[in-house]
């Protein structure tokens, strides 16, 4: 799972790229060919891709925490097995993504350091708590649904190793989505208390879900170059619109009320209209002041420190690091 709220900063070429090489690079992307690790690429392309793939990897790792905490309390054996498999998938996705980012030249050690020191970001939505089982179901169904919208778009991007990792990830996410929907159908068709439990979760999670796709196009950093280079495959508002198109009807079908009286599809424009999400809150949470930011990093850092002796025991003086090949 992954939020498209990737923040791009400093989008201007830092030094002049060789114009001939740049033209060849752009022509290759234009032809629909993939860029591979050994190909020439502009410094900005490399930098923004590392940032994006790394944020995606961290989101998989941190995203496993709010769900992982529910494994022991999931209702029944079958749900426990499924949730365990899902959490295992998410952590596996992070491994694939870290490897893809490494092919661009940033080591895994640096990436993990940047995460646990609070320097790298991850999807903002995981800074919110899961109070009940229904919150966990909301994540499994709808946060993963949002992630799939982003990932299917990004899988058509230009960087070979990232696209190949995403193809594999999307195939596994289809299980998450079906499982999450299954959980919510059972809550919807359950007792009045179960229905209310999901409605409460929906009320809590709707604002962060709207944040999930990143700031509105009106206020977000101009990213034409990244679109042309197929780093970013759609605007934040396009992704949000696509999600609403696919999932608002499914939520309403189950008789739940989305907590936004303005939410409505404008049939003329084909675009959804909604109350503008609170972007100040988004900024505040992404910068560390959310309900669970400290907890997420503390858990991650504790795991890293408790595992240190194992890694030290396994390390061989003969090991030589080499970037993954593809």
């Amino acid at each position: 799972m992954y939020g498209g709220g990737t923040t791009f900063e400093g989008i201007k070429a830092e030094k002049k790229d060789d114009p001939v090489k740049l033209a060849e690079f752009e022509a290759r992307i234009e032809r629909g060919e993939k860029i591979e690790p050994t190909d020439w690429m502009p410094a900005l392309y490399r930098k923004q891709l590392i940032r994006m793939i790394e944020q995606h990897a961290h989101s998989e790792i941190i995203g496993a925490l709010p769900e992982g905490t529910w494994i022991t309390r999931a209702p029944g054996f079958k749900r426990k097995m499924a949730l365990m498999a899902k959490v295992q998938d998410e952590v596996g996705h992070a491994q694939l993504l870290y490897s893809a980012a490494e092919t661009l030249g940033k080591s895994r050690e640096e990436m993990i350091d940047d995460l646990i020191n609070g320097k790298s970001k991850y999807s903002n939505i995981f800074n919110y708590p899961t109070f009940t089982w229904a919150d966990c179901c909301f994540i499994s169904w709808l946060v993963d649904a949002g992630a799939i919208v982003n990932q299917l778009a990004n899988a058509k991007g230009s960087y070979g190793p990232y696209c190949r990792a995403l193809d594999r990830i999307c195939a596994e996410e289809s299980f998450h989505l079906k499982y999450g929907h299954h959980c919510v159908i059972y809550l919807a068709a359950g007792t009045e208390i179960q229905r209310q439990m999901f409605q409460d979760a929906l009320n809590r999670w709707w604002p962060p879900m709207m944040h999930f796709f990143g700031p509105s196009d009106k206020i977000s950093v101009h990213s034409d170059t990244l679109m042309k280079w197929k780093v970013k495959m759609g605007s934040n508002d396009d992704m949000r619109n696509q999600f609403l198109d696919m999932y608002v009807p499914k939520i309403r079908e189950l008789g739940f009320v989305i907590p936004d009286p303005k939410l409505n599809k404008n049939e003329e424009t084909g675009r959804w209209e909604y109350t503008e999400p609170d972007w100040e809150e988004f900024k505040r949470v992404i910068n560390g002041d959310g309900p669970c930011n400290k907890e997420r990093l503390a858990v991650r850092r504790t795991a890293e420190e408790r595992g240190r002796w194992v890694r030290e025991a396994l390390r061989s003086p003969k090991t030589v690091y080499q970037m993954p090949l593809a």
């Binding site: 905490t69 490897s99 490494e102 080591s107 895994r108 050690e109 640096e110 993990i112 350091d113 646990i116 020191n117 609070g118 400290k294 907890e295 990093l297 503390a298 858990v299 850092r301 504790t302 890293e304 420190e305 240190r308 890694r311 396994l314 390390r315 090991t319 030589v320 690091y321 080499q322 970037m323 993954p324």
Partner: peptide, 24 residues
């Protein structure tokens, strides 16, 4: 999580050794 030791993230920087994550 409540049982975890307090970690002051802002005031303690963790730096990994080279090859902490082993070979590829």
């Amino acid at each position: 999580v409540n049982r975890l030791p307090e970690i002051d993230i802002e005031n303690s920087v963790s730096r990994k050794d080279p090859l902490d994550q082993l070979g590829t």
